[in-house]
Structures are given as C-alpha cells and as structure tokens.
Design a protein around this nucleic acid. Structure first.
Lengths: 334, 334
DNA sequence: CTGAAAGCGCTTACAG
DNA sequence: CTGAAAGCGCTTACAG
C-alpha cells in the first residue's frame, strides 16, 4: 500500500466477509462469533491487511494502549553510565510484555516538555503514567494525579497529593552498610550523600545518621550520585577531616569516584579506608578491589511500577506504598 | 476533578460560552472568530479546565501529535556510556520544540516489542517514526515504509526500500584519521572496527582501507563500538601483530579501551603507538593523553532527522539522503 | 463571522 | 450468534 491510499476500514472487511461491522468487530476483539463467520472475517482481514484505527477505538473504549514512563531529567542524565534507568525499563517491559500496552518513554527535561507531557496525559493520549526519579516536590505528580490519569511513582512522592509508590528500603540499607563498617572496626566513618532533594538521597543519609548516632561523630560530604561528585566529595573529606577510615557512599558511582581519589592519594582500600557503595551496579563486582555495596532490586521496582499502574488502570485496589528490601553484598573493599 | 468524573467536552464549553461547537472549535484551533465570542469561549475553557480529547481529534485530522524515535536495541545498549543517543535526542528535541509534536521513545529490543511498534505505527498511533542505529537489513524500516507511515533513518538503510536518511561522512572521516597517522610517520597502522552489520562500522572500515591501500598492509581487528571490545581487539593486535605503531579505532569508546590495554602493556601513547578515535565524545578531551579523534555532529543528525520527518509528514519534498561532514580533531594521542 | 449537519472509524447495548 | 443503530468527541465544508 503506498502513501495516499485509504487504509481499509472495518467496513471494508465486513463487506468482503459478508457480515456486519459488529460481527467483524467481535472477531477482532476476540468475542464469541460463529466459526464460519470468524473464518470469513479473518480471511478478509488478511486479504486487505486490515489494522484497526487506534483513534476510533480509543474514542469509544477510552483506552489508548500506551503507557508512559516519564523521566524528569534531561536526556544527558537519563543516559548516563548510571545503570538505573535501563534496569528500571527492563523490569517495566517484563511486566508489560503480557499486558497489551506499549511502553513509551517521555523525557521531561525542559519546562516546555513537561508542560507538553502534562497536556498529553490529560488529553487521554496515554492510559497511565509512571514517574521515576522525581526531584523535590515536583509539581508534575500533583498535576497529573489531579487530572485523573492513573499515576504511580518510584519512591514516595513529596507534596500534597497521594500517588501510589514503589520504593526500596534506602534507610535500612544505609544503616546496614554503616553497621557493617562499625562492626569491622572503623572508628571514623564518613558518608557521601546523594542529592538532598531526592528521597533516595535523603533516606540514605538518614540511615547513616541513625547508625552512627551515639557511636561516632557524623562526617558528611554531599554529592549527587555521579562519579564526579564522588571524587569531589572524597577530595574534600581528605582535606578537611583527618582520620577517616570508613566511607559510605550513597551510590556505587560515587564510591567509584571516591576509590579513585583514595588511590591517587596513596590510601589503600580497605586497609587504610574501607568503602561501601549503594546500588550494586554491574561494575561494582569489577572494581579493584571489588566493592562492598547495598544491592537494590531496580528491576523489581520496574516490575512493581508497571503492575501497580496496570491495576490502577483496571480500577483495582493498589497498595499506597510498597517498599522492597535491600541487601548488603560484602566484597573486598571492607 | 477526581477520577470517574466525566471530563468536559467541547459541548460543555460551547454551551457555557453560548456559542456553537463549531465556534468553540475554531477558537481552540486559532481560526478567525469574533473577539467577543473568542473571549467567551476562552473564559469557558478556563472555567471548566477543558482539554481537547486527542482521540476524537485524531479521528478527523489523521494526526496524533506524537512522533516516535525507535531504537532497535535493548535498553542496556541504548543507555550505555556511549553518548550517542542522548546527543541524538537532544538534537531531535531541539528541532521538535517549535513543532507541535511530542517525542516518544520506543525501544525495539525484543521481537515482540518490534512487532508491537510496527502495529502501533500502522494503526496511526504516531505521525511518523525516526529510526536510529539500525543493524544489517533490519526489516523494520521496510515494514514501516510499506505501511505508509512517514519514516526517516540515520545512516542509509540497507535493503530494498528507500527511506530518507541522514548520515555522516564516515568514510571521509576515517580516511582523514588514517592519512593523519600516515603523515605523522606511522609505518604500521591497524584499525579496530565497529560492527560489520552497521553502516557506521562498514564505512569507517572502508575509509581505513582506502587510505591505507598501496601504502601499507592493512591490519584489522574487529570490535563492536564498546570499550570492552576495544580492549579485546587491542589485546589481540598486540599478540598477533608486532610492530603496530598506529591505531585507528572506529569509536572513542574502543579507543579508550585500546589506550587502557596499551598502557597496561607498557606502551607509551603517542610515542610508541599513536591512537585516533571516532565520535569526539566528551571524555575524548579528558583521557590521558587527550584523544585525537574524528568529530561527528550527532546533534546535527538529530536535528536533520526531525526536520526531514516533519517535512515528510507535511507532504513536502525531502532529500533522499543527507551526509553531514566530519572533522579531524587533533589532540595529544597522535 | 457563525451554526447545522455530516462524518471520521470504531464499539456496544439492545433486540431478535 | 448477529445486525441496526446509537454514540464516542471532535473538525470542517457548506450555506448563510
């Protein structure tokens, strides 16, 4: 079929099969139809290469078959060497495989793009949206939720609106990391934090503080989850706090950065300074020395995000918040 | 508005403004309307928070306002530390900013996902699709083109169908790189190739062969653009070909891998072995030593992809193929 | 400039 | 099991 030809409609198919549009529609939607009619319709569909017009369908069913994963980051941050998003997407895709929904990614880096996305969702262009990696009290979640589109988020959402969320036990994971450092004899344990406007950043810091409390004086250097920020933070720790012999970095990437700086400055890991990361990205097992870290089930977050959203779309009850467990993976950096 | 409430329709707005649906529609679509009517409608829209139903609109206009960027890769490869995709997306977004189109990313990693995407496009879910990073004679381009959806591709498309494409001068870039190595006195220049089923891989190898022809015996080690493949290839070169004093790697990532292996084996760059990459990713300027490389305008590819597609959608004539120039950036690795 | 009406291509009670 | 008919929410000639 070349461009400009009219695509065949249900009408075409029905006429060719010698049945009504209603019957043709029923075989397409897998509803009971007498076998001979069914066969005739199927033959007609194959013959003309019929594909239902999605707009017409959506107009009556109020479903589009599209689910959006909105990433409120610029493309550069989304496609960084942090393996969070690919793993998340893998989990989401896995869950969506069976559902008849197509995943679309929308990047909400700029103001105009977020506005466009908000309007898209409200205009009924998608059946639901998953929000990931929100910063601060991002108004996007509120706007979407208020408009009536089903929304779910990873990590709990800050702000007035309630959005079902899937998080991990950031606090418990961080606590386990720090307790491990304490248990292995470290006397001066610092932390390199994530962004202070993200749940994952806030909660991992809280976990550190809870564990360190009463035992040692807290030493905090802030970062933003990136390797560069880990390097900068470690450099500052070395310059401003002597005697640090243990570091809990709130991401593996920052831990890598810290490791690099430590070695450049002649510190042995773990002999002089023990190091724990968070995430358990693939490379964590291949650093030198392999990195002790807190594993979080990123694909699990993805799967739960998708299944919760699917439930929401089906108007089924959902958990207001799910927290997945984290696990301390002990390697050679501690 | 809570979930379950009926969203207001044009009818609601028209009634409230005391005009017909046609008039209300006209103000929404920015067509001439008497100022008083316009004001009344605008007030009504604001009052009820009206947003046009996209499905109804699409049904009559045959436009969805959605443009797909289809990436025929698993999410892991798309989100690698190769900065190709983010830069491409940046260019695309830039161009789309003014057009009233929302960019959606679709990952076509698995067989079921490509089938779903194909059906989506044919069903008229998107106004057009951009294909990037195709492998071999991927049937996706053919299927889409045949269905009548406007399609464009980065790099020319292998196979029977004609799809407008935007590529870069891979061959010329590679030639310039190798000629530079020859001109600076390298006597035994090897290449580390990209995937043999991708245009970028094939053409950069051709450029190398063209330049080396007659002057030296070609030495070829194959890779797939990733850092790991660059390491492996360099290791093989060292083991199997003595005397190599120059290397042209078809990607900066592979060049980085090669650099790593060279230094581990005690070779100095550029004194013992000169090295040229391809891409000019950000890190190329920060390796030790900074990498000589062939810069390709990835954001330019993105911008042209989008503008060509927009033209195609508007039924305007487009170039069948555009080739952007590359530029040799000389740094300290040669 | 404006409105009545047709039509886009489907699905879904409803009646048989 | 099947068909006639209504309706989803818009846009757009057409006539005025």
């Amino acid at each position: 079929m070349s461009r400009g030809d009219r695509r065949p409609t249900l009408e075409t198919v029905a006429a060719l099969a010698g049945v009504s549009r209603a019957t043709a529609s029923r075989v397409i939607n897998d509803q009971p139809v007498a076998p001979p009619s069914r066969r005739a319709v199927e033959r007609a569909i194959a013959e003309v290469g019929y594909v239902p017009n999605q707009a017409a369908r959506s107009l009556v069913t109020h479903r589009t078959g599209l689910i959006a994963l909105v990433l409120p980051e610029s493309s550069t941050r989304v496609f960084s060497d942090d393996q969070f998003f690919p793993r998340l997407i893998q989990g989401v895709s896995q869950e969506l495989e069976t559902a008849d929904e197509q995943l679309v990614l929308m990047l909400a880096g700029s103001a105009t793009s977020r506005e466009r996305i908000e309007r898209s969702a409200v205009a009924g262009r998608v059946d639901g949206v998953m929000l990931a990696s929100l910063h601060g009290t991002d108004p996007l979640s509120g706007a979407l939720a208020k408009s009536g589109v089903p929304v779910v988020s990873n990590e709990r959402v800050l702000g007035p609106v309630e959005v079902p969320s899937i998080g991990v036990d950031n606090r418990g994971g961080a606590r386990a990391a720090v307790e491990h450092l304490i248990a292995t004899g470290r006397r001066r344990i610092a932390t390199i934090t994530g962004p202070s406007d993200m749940i994952a950043g806030m909660d991992r810091l809280d976990g550190y503080l809870e564990a360190i409390e009463g035992a040692q004086e807290p030493v905090v250097a802030s970062g933003d989850f990136t390797r560069a920020s880990g390097e900068a933070a470690m450099t500052r720790l070395l310059a401003e706090h002597s005697g640090v012999d243990g570091v809990f970095a709130a991401s593996d990437l920052m831990a890598e950065g810290a490791l690099h700086v430590l070695r450049q400055n002649g510190f042995r890991v773990p002999e002089d300074v023990a190091l724990v990361g968070f995430d358990d990205i693939t490379r964590a097992a291949h650093t030198d020395p392999p990195l002790t870290t807190v594993r979080q089930p990123v694909d699990g977050i993805g799967r739960h995000l998708a299944s919760q959203l699917l439930s929401l779309i089906a108007a089924e009850p959902v958990e207001p918040a799910i927290t997945l467990t984290t696990e301390l993976i002990i390697r050679d950096s501690t």
